[in-house]
Nucleic acid binder design. Sequence first.
DNA 1: ATTATCTATAGATCTATAGATAATGC
DNA 2: ATTATCTATAGATCTATAGATAATGC
Lengths: 231, 231
Amino acid sequence: MSETATANPHRNAGRPRASGVKASPETRRQILDAAAALFVRRGFAGASTQAIAAAAGLRQPTLFHYFPTKDAILEALYMASLDEPLAAFARIEALPAPAPVRLYAAIYADTAFLSATAVTQKAIFLLPELGQPRFAGVRAARERLIATYARMIAQGMESGDFRPGDAGLLARLVMSLDEAPIDIAAAKPSAESGEQARIVADFALSALLLPPARLDEIRVAGLALLNLTRT
Amino acid sequence: MSETATANPHRNAGRPRASGVKASPETRRQILDAAAALFVRRGFAGASTQAIAAAAGLRQPTLFHYFPTKDAILEALYMASLDEPLAAFARIEALPAPAPVRLYAAIYADTAFLSATAVTQKAIFLLPELGQPRFAGVRAARERLIATYARMIAQGMESGDFRPGDAGLLARLVMSLDEAPIDIAAAKPSAESGEQARIVADFALSALLLPPARLDEIRVAGLALLNLTRT
DNA sequence: ATTATCTATAGATCTATAGATAATGC
DNA sequence: ATTATCTATAGATCTATAGATAATGC
């Protein structure tokens, strides 16, 4: 975070790029976009700083003018992807509406947040590196989103809207649905992000709402079926 | 696949290990287990063959006696994780039961398949490397699982058990729930795999079953709420 | 003077190969 | 003889640093 390029007095200074591409005030953003695309396709360690720089129209060491380390690029991506949902969740949670309605709005917001082009960026939350100690801060921020879901789900259970269950576990299932559109977007690029958001939010709410209808009966029959097929 | 260790005539031959650990007929399996754990924690490129070998009690080049390349290790992991679910799905789909019941059984089977210790191995399906051309065969096998879900969901819609929708998209959401227990297992290691399987299958079936009850009303209110919070 | 970029490179990996070695079992 | 392992290493990376360079703008 030390070398971050800020609003500068010398607007257009600097040596020209070898690639010929004109320097842009958006360079930092372009590096982040290039990095996200490569991290998601090749993994963090598999995406070299050389490849990221090339995708951004720069030579490899120039990245280190904008970010102190390669890790810092991923960290900046994570934080940028969490800021808006965190703010949106805080706003939605404070509104005077029934828990199921607030939950619907939160899920829709989180799924629709990223525009169609940036949807792939959400896949950074599936990178194994997220689990490493160095990204504990990012995980904590993501856990705050999950905790918001859990509170809304618990409130919905108390009010009798949702069927009873472990609100924490169910919140994680809802979060895993939020991250599913990555897969969907890859398989069916035609679907609009608003349409996807609606499908995901409908799915999640249907899963939580009472009455479970014929669920009990189906569970019993399904488990019996499984016993039949055990080898 | 060329150098696979097969049932050998010379059972206990071979130079002893430098680590002192006794050689085992399970060496191949142990390499796969060590590799899965490291791939999931550090990513594919981030898990060196040196680290994998060390975790398996071997020196680095010994891996290449069992697998021709590092890629082949990941490929073997994928295939081993898909074989059993593919076979189970084929059996379940052929059974004479209503679509919702078969779907419940399939989801339960896929979620419960891996024992509690091996649950992390499921996370290999979240590795970005899966998207690369070299793993097209693995993706095709995974798509067959998703297609089975999609067929069952479509049948459930035809029979009037499930609310209408895009069966292909919904199948992907169900698959993303299957892969969620990774996250759950990491956050709450106490949950039994059978309990998790039940929670996931209940969640998915509730989401699909008719009637959607108050879903329409909640959706309208939720979207209205979102418009209020738009900045 | 300040800035963004460049070239060159040090030092640390990392995969895979070559070929030696220390067991077993015929 | 066959096997599983080892040691040594070639060759190809990959991150990050050092320091030069080519612009702008005071």
